[in-house]
């Protein structure tokens, strides 16, 4: 029995499926990506580029699909689905790395002295109450002195010394100091060097003429003034944040409208009567002053007459 023809047919079929390369393909199933590291065959490249590229693409796709069929599968309504492994190839970042935050004065100092950061808990244990209380905020521990029902008064205190008020003032001063430091830290973080300051001043002076700098003499090598670049939110950020800000905006708009309505109603308690129209009707078009004058007979304003009679 001659089976060579069957074997040949089988071989031809396998040739279609199997891809043999000098260097095997690098397949990254997670990205569905195949990398061909073989050098380009110059002969076939120059001879027929289209066919060469098509063959390359076919081999790559064949290798990828072969690899996909080797993966574990799960059943689904649409047929078996391959479970892709995690991605191996490191894709480059789309955006540059975020800049590191500028250090605060304290952070700089702590780094120099080797002080490690200790995170404070929001809640602290209260020995007297025998429970956890907030360090600050609602019923905070920092308000304990001003909220206690009995407070010691120092011996040398003034007659009008209010211990609760004093404690509150002290606390408010601490927050104010912290806020001041925060603002100072931000100012320090922004690079306000002498050069940038000078440039800012120069830019201001250049547009501070009657023609807004349009007809000024141009100096040699003077650069064109650049305006402030508009900055918009990134398009590709998740929509959830946008939704939150939109809802916040809507609620603020709503509360604004309500406030407006309230003040409006406060001014006119009864807006069913059009006061202006009523006055016009009652005074027969003369206005409120005439109405007042008519009511008082010869009113206070009636004394003085027209033009030139002084």
């Amino acid at each position: 029995m001659d089976v060579s023809s069957i074997l040949d047919a089988q071989k031809a079929r396998e040739q279609n499926v199997q891809v043999d390369k000098e260097t095997p393909f690098e397949i990254d199933c997670g990205h569905l990506m195949v990398t061909d590291l073989n050098p380009i065959d110059e002969e076939s490249y120059t001879e027929n580029l289209e066919e060469h590229l098509q063959n390359l693409a076919r081999d790559g796709t064949q290798a990828l699909i072969g690899a996909l069929f080797g993966l574990p599968t799960t059943k689904s309504d649409y047929g078996p689905l391959a479970q892709l492994p995690s991605r191996a190839y490191q894709l480059p970042r789309a955006k540059p790395l975020p800049k590191p935050k500028p250090q605060t004065k304290w952070e700089k100092f702590a780094a120099a002295k080797g002080i490690s950061h200790r995170k404070k808990d929001k809640r602290v244990w209260d020995e007297e109450k025998q429970e956890w209380v907030n360090r600050w905020g609602k019923d905070g521990k920092n308000k304990q002195v001003e909220e206690q029902w009995l407070t010691e008064v120092p011996r040398n205190a003034d007659a009008d010394y209010n211990p609760q008020l004093a404690a509150r003032q002290e606390r408010k001063e601490r927050t104010a100091k912290n806020e001041k430091q925060r603002v100072a830290n931000i100012a320090r973080g922004e690079s306000s060097s002498r050069k940038t300051e000078l440039e800012k001043t120069l830019a201001t002076t250049r547009v501070s003429t009657a023609s807004m700098g349009k007809f000024d003499k141009k100096l040699e090598g003077e650069k064109k003034l650049r305006g402030i670049k508009r900055k918009f939110d990134p398009t590709e950020a998740p929509v959830g944040n946008e939704q939150k800000t939109a809802l916040k905006l809507i609620s603020s708009m709503d509360s604004d409208a309500r406030k407006m309505r309230k003040t409006h109603r406060g001014d006119e308690p009864d807006n069913t009567l059009n006061a202006r129209k009523a006055i016009r009707f009652a005074s027969k078009g003369q206005g409120a002053a005439a109405l007042a004058g008519a009511r008082g007979g010869k009113g206070a304003r009636g004394g003085r007459g027209g033009k030139g009679r002084r």
């Binding site: 918009f232 939110d233 990134p234 398009t235 950020a237 946008e242 800000t245 939109a246 905006l249 809507i250």
Partner: peptide, 17 residues
């Protein structure tokens, strides 16, 4: 294509509202 700024969204929302 970009998201709306706050002023723009305010204009759109007041009109829609």
């Amino acid at each position: 294509m970009r998201p709306l700024t706050e002023e723009e969204s305010k204009a759109v929302f007041t009109k829609l509202a």
